[in-house]
Design a protein around this nucleic acid. Structure first.
Length: 563
RNA sequence: GGGCGGCUAGCUCAGGGGUAGAGCAUCUGACUUUUAAUCAGAUGGUCGCGGGUUCGAAUCCCGCGCCGCUCACCA
């Protein structure tokens, strides 16, 4: 049993249930994957499904107050993985994603265009802020759409809930009224952790002014039922609204969150570490949902932050670049994005790398796949974990095990990069260079293979270190200056290529280079440096024997004929 | 000040009462040494410190120490 999961957050609600069955049932082994462990916890904490619980409800959500970045994505994918685990266990699940687009626009993010236009809309609900790109109906929708468009690419497809229309249609009016009725209960809960107590005239609601559109208002009274009176601080105007029809009132975050748990019947929702400490918003929300709304808080866990390695370092820099899911998908294929998150415990921080680590991640994933298919043998415990991680990384109709019934063709990332550099990014030409790749056999895998190739090429052109990159010459460049013996060696290589390249394999070609070095009296280290210089203008390069064969006779002669 | 997490091999981390683990690094060997290539093998740790429980503790309990994060505005 993981210590972190029995934190104070849930203790009052899980203890009675756990003693009744799961804890005492030793016949069933603990699942190896955190998503399955969480699913089990949801089932045992929340009880079996039944008439009043036809499905488990798993929730995620965020304020679309800016570009949704990869750190925010951790929450969504974490929920998705738990949803998968519940469904794999045979349960019906509702997966909701709440956009808090009735939230206030507090500051203009650096990565948005038309900054001064946006600045004019501060303190209004983000659903009323215009799209700075001038395409969609609002700033909120811009940020929502950007994420909603890309999520299906990683197999995530929640039911979206938009809070602005719900608030404006007064769907939450009963919840707001309850908050007003329990004003002092809420105040007491929030005050417990505040340095300065909430002022006497504090109310658990915020109101957007009908006169200014902004939330710079003050509640001046409540009639005990549906009538709420506020004053607009900007215009001095005052009016009384009916909660059942007004489109101006919302709950503050710490009350809004538990209210929605109650309304949607949320059984599970994780939260970032900024929410998950004593006095944090989850901590107060779980008390508010219990003491104000009379409902048990969801099962939860805390997820840690994501950092970025090899590309600026921060997810969201003040200079404007934001690393979102779309940026990660430029370099990592979708299953590997899932693999990154499925393979890391949520409460562990990790970095998404854009540097040389990318190669290792691809290799790790391919190994995981081999283990999952039993092609590579490891210990049973490790195998079980890798298998499950692999399963959770797959999605869609070709989910594990694939319909074709065999392990997908693996194109090693490093080799793929080399081939792409030789073909200057021509993906089909690069795929053709793989001996294992047979268009007739692998036709159904072509989209996936192409996707990997696109990622590899993106990585080479925008992330890979200079040392790694090369560009094959085309023969139009001025020849490299060489000593006579070196020139003779190059000629010998040219002759070899011209007459016998096709009869060589990687190894024999490599050996032939050594022979030529010996025959021409060139140092064996030196001949490699010379050939790399001639071919790609660098001192080092991919292992030469295979490299020459890969480049092919025609392109080699195009270059070598200059000598 | 409160809360959470970490402290295990040189590095990154897994393990969580029963002989201390992996990858990378290092070293040795192989491939007539070539992008941080591949293969075989080896070296390497008082599991932060101090107590306790136990036949047995890296693991559970108590205390302490660093390091980091987070809340105490807003969300």
């Amino acid at each position: 049993m993981h210590q972190c999961f029995s934190s104070v957050v849930c203790r009052p609600y899980i203890l009675p249930l756990m003693t009744s069955h799961d804890r005492t049932d030793h016949s069933r082994p603990q699942p190896v994957h955190w998503a399955d462990q969480t699913a089990n916890r949801i089932i045992s904490d929340k009880g079996p499904r039944g008439a009043d619980r036809p499905h488990y409800t798993c929730a995620s959500g965020i304020t679309p107050s800016g570009t949704v970045h990869i750190g925010n994505f951790r929450e969504i994918i974490s929920v998705d993985l738990v949803v998968r685990a519940l469904r794999d266990a045979g349960h019906s699940v509702r997966f909701i994603y709440s956009w808090d687009d009735f939230d206030v626009f507090r500051k203009v993010p650096a990565n948005m265009p038309n900054q001064d236009i946006l600045a004019g809309y501060l303190r209004r609900p983000i659903t009323d802020v215009p799209d700075p790109f001038g395409e969609l109906s609002s700033y909120a929708e811009r940020n929502e759409r950007d994420l909603e468009t890309v999520l299906p690419e990683v197999g995530v497809d929640p039911e979206y809930i938009y809070q602005a229309p719900k608030y404006r249609a007064s769907e939450y009016a009963p919840g707001i009224r309850t908050a007003l009725e329990k004003r002092e209960v809420i105040r007491a809960i929030l005050d417990e952790h505040r340095t300065t107590p909430l002022p006497d005239d504090w109310w658990p609601v915020s109101v957007f002014s009908r006169f200014s559109g902004k939330d710079t208002t003050k509640v001046v009274g409540w009639d005990g039922e549906w009538g709420l009176t506020y004053r607009c601080e900007e215009t001095g105007e005052q009016e009384t609204v009916d909660l059942r029809v007004t489109d101006l009132v919302k709950l503050p975050w710490r009350v809004d969150w538990p209210m929605r748990w109650k309304v949607e019947g949320v059984d599970f929702e994780p939260a970032g570490k900024e929410h998950h400490s004593a006095g944090g918003s989850f901590d107060t929300a779980k008390r508010v949902v219990a003491d104000v709304y009379g409902s048990a808080p969801p099962v939860t866990f805390k997820y840690d932050f994501i950092s970025i390695k090899g590309r600026g370092g921060k997810i969201s820099s003040s200079t404007g670049e934001v690393i979102g899911l779309a940026e990660v998908l430029e370099v990592y294929e979708p299953q590997i994005v899932r693999y990154l998150f499925a393979g890391t415990r949520p409460n562990a921080e990790f970095a998404i790398s854009f540097d040389l680590d990318v190669i290792k991640i691809y290799e790790d994933y391919d190994r995981c796949e081999r283990i999952a298919f039993g092609v590579e043998e490891v210990g049973e415990k490790r195998a079980a974990k890798e298998r499950r991680t692999y399963e959770l990384s797959q999605f869609g109709p070709t989910s594990y095990p694939p319909a074709v019934g065999r392990m997908p063709l693996q194109l090693p990332f490093r080799t793929l990069c080399n081939y792409l550099m030789i073909t200057a990014g021509d993906i089909d030409a690069a795929l053709d260079r793989f001996a294992e790749y047979d268009p007739a056999v692998h036709a159904d895998e072509l989209p996936r293979l192409r996707r990997r190739a696109i990622c590899a090429w993106n990585w080479i052109t925008s992330c890979a270190p200079e040392d790694f990159r090369f560009e094959l010459k085309d023969g139009s460049e001025p020849p490299v200056a060489l000593a006579p013996q070196e020139l003779a060696a190059v000629h010998a290589v040219r002759d070899e290529v011209s007459s016998r390249l096709d009869s060589h394999d990687e190894k024999s070609m490599q050996e032939r280079i050594y022979e030529i070095a010996h025959e021409q009296g060139v140092d064996k280290r030196r001949i490699f440096a010379v050939l790399y210089d001639v071919l790609i203008g660098k001192e080092r390069g991919p292992r030469l024997g295979g490299f020459l064969i890969t480049i092919g006779r025609q392109r080699l002669l195009q270059i070598l004929d200059r000598y």
